[in-house]
Design a protein around this nucleic acid. Sequence first.
DNA 1: AATGAATGAGTCTTCATTCAT
DNA 2: CATGAATGAAGACTCATTCAT
Lengths: 183, 183, 183, 183
Amino acid sequence: MEQNSRDKLAWTAARLFQRRGYHGVGLSEILSAAKLPKGSLYHHFPKGKSDLALEAAAFAHREMTRIIDDAFQNAESFEAGAKTLFFKLAKLFEMMGKDTGCPISLILFNGPEEDIFRKRCAEFFTSWMHQIASHAKRLGKSSEDAPILAQKIFVTLQGGWTLARANQDGNVIRGLSTLLFKE
Amino acid sequence: MEQNSRDKLAWTAARLFQRRGYHGVGLSEILSAAKLPKGSLYHHFPKGKSDLALEAAAFAHREMTRIIDDAFQNAESFEAGAKTLFFKLAKLFEMMGKDTGCPISLILFNGPEEDIFRKRCAEFFTSWMHQIASHAKRLGKSSEDAPILAQKIFVTLQGGWTLARANQDGNVIRGLSTLLFKE
Amino acid sequence: MEQNSRDKLAWTAARLFQRRGYHGVGLSEILSAAKLPKGSLYHHFPKGKSDLALEAAAFAHREMTRIIDDAFQNAESFEAGAKTLFFKLAKLFEMMGKDTGCPISLILFNGPEEDIFRKRCAEFFTSWMHQIASHAKRLGKSSEDAPILAQKIFVTLQGGWTLARANQDGNVIRGLSTLLFKE
Amino acid sequence: MEQNSRDKLAWTAARLFQRRGYHGVGLSEILSAAKLPKGSLYHHFPKGKSDLALEAAAFAHREMTRIIDDAFQNAESFEAGAKTLFFKLAKLFEMMGKDTGCPISLILFNGPEEDIFRKRCAEFFTSWMHQIASHAKRLGKSSEDAPILAQKIFVTLQGGWTLARANQDGNVIRGLSTLLFKE
DNA sequence: AATGAATGAGTCTTCATTCAT
DNA sequence: CATGAATGAAGACTCATTCAT
């Protein structure tokens, strides 16, 4: 029961923050979307909205981690893995309505307790890049190239997702692999 | 006087939105930061906050347009121009306190009247890419390559700026030219 | 208009705080008792409840100052003036419903910003005692005795009012002059 | 165990109410100060906060009763006993941090169920005065004077404690015996 | 043309209490 | 017997906006 409510709250919050950012979403909206009563939030997240946001971001982080692993796990090359990743994320972007942004930055930038939030954000980003770099090495890239490639993937994805959102077009994300490797 | 107040308002708003997003900044904060009286906002921007946000975004757009032109104007090659652009923006990022994001998306995503805002955002992004593509062609790139390169620069910059903010490190932006061209 | 609303707010707040203390009275209760709309409070008292409480206390202080002067003004002796004071306050106590306490302590103790509130409270109390001492000297008491008598009146009144409230009997306050001087 | 928890709760509550009044202290604060689990309150006090407040007041009442007896027990005269009482209470006031008020009035005024609370308060006050009057008679005062003297002590103490709190100075309480008898 | 007073829906949060275990 | 999860009314406060001057 407990975990269910808590997770539902975090998941709902993540989904909403991703659309309109930390300040753009009210607690009442989250609560009603999660179909939970008003008082229940502070039971699960004693520190309130910021607590919830941190958990929502962790939620989104774990999901992204899983997606990255899924993409590269059975890839025949790093480039193929990256392409799979872009395609998976394009699909996700489309499924969520083409009006979402990077959950991590939308939750953790612009929020209160700026330093804690920002550091957490940096940790998640770093973690993703490490993860991608690991796959790169496993798939034959040199120890020198791997982190560079990982960062390249990361920034391209971040920027590409933003452009996709502006244009409401998931194909922008799909096209990123061409942008990166076909040249 | 009138234009002065109006511009001051738009400029101040842009500066603040860039840090905490559309919903993260209240009208009263903007007014007090601009040292303007309470009632003056609706004199200059009859539709209120959304009007102001649109103008603030236009303000930021014009500034970015100018920076892009400055960077490529006297460049000896497209790559050199891009590098100059990254360095200029890194400096800007640092001057603003290392805690800002892309003004356009922070203002125009997540706001009300979603569609109008989003379309305006797409227009600005497209405009930047066209502008960069123009410089690319002028500097010898083919008509085929130019828009691709422009998009590459754009997404890299968007994502790189986000990473720079998370890490509070302007050198992330400076490093983007290496990431793009040194390989 | 403006001053009217502000004063009405302060006066209403003082009346309510005197019954149930700073924390015992909600802003909404004050607003509805004053028949003023929700948002109007923060227009007049930007810092909110604590601001309002400070003003309410000042209001009560001025009223008490006036009552003290009225009581001693035409008195033939200090003792007669004190008796008049007790009788006036007994009447006030009864008019207010026999369920009120010292407005100053009820507002300024137990509130937030403890130090500012407490100091203000001490100032008011001291001011009353100075005022009473002045009248004492004017009415023939020595410079040595006057402040002692003033403090005596003050503490007796404070304690007597508390007892009167517990017993819901204004005569307790009337009896204080006998308690003090008939011996 | 059970009684221990119950008493700890009442004692903690009394201590906190004395500082910020009935409405100024939340149940959660009491619970966490007493280091007891959330649900335990309604086990010991089925009617909740008002029940607890009544018990806390009784607690404080018993303590005051004991202090009064201690002060007068071995006194050589009523005046000496009163002086001892003032000194004991001054010490208590200082030990508690100079920011407390009369526990009985702070708990029992301003609370809900006003009538029950107020009557209980009156009973306690009356009881103290009877007790002091008894000592007065035992120490040689007449049956006529004794209750008057007791009331005098009571109101002086009530008012003096209030003044001591405002001035954060325990010596105000010590000085009360001079105020009463040295003249 | 320009402003500050006024407004009430909205914000996040804490409250005392009940309930299921 | 004891407890922590659950609850919704109420808490103080901020919001973007309108209005009268």
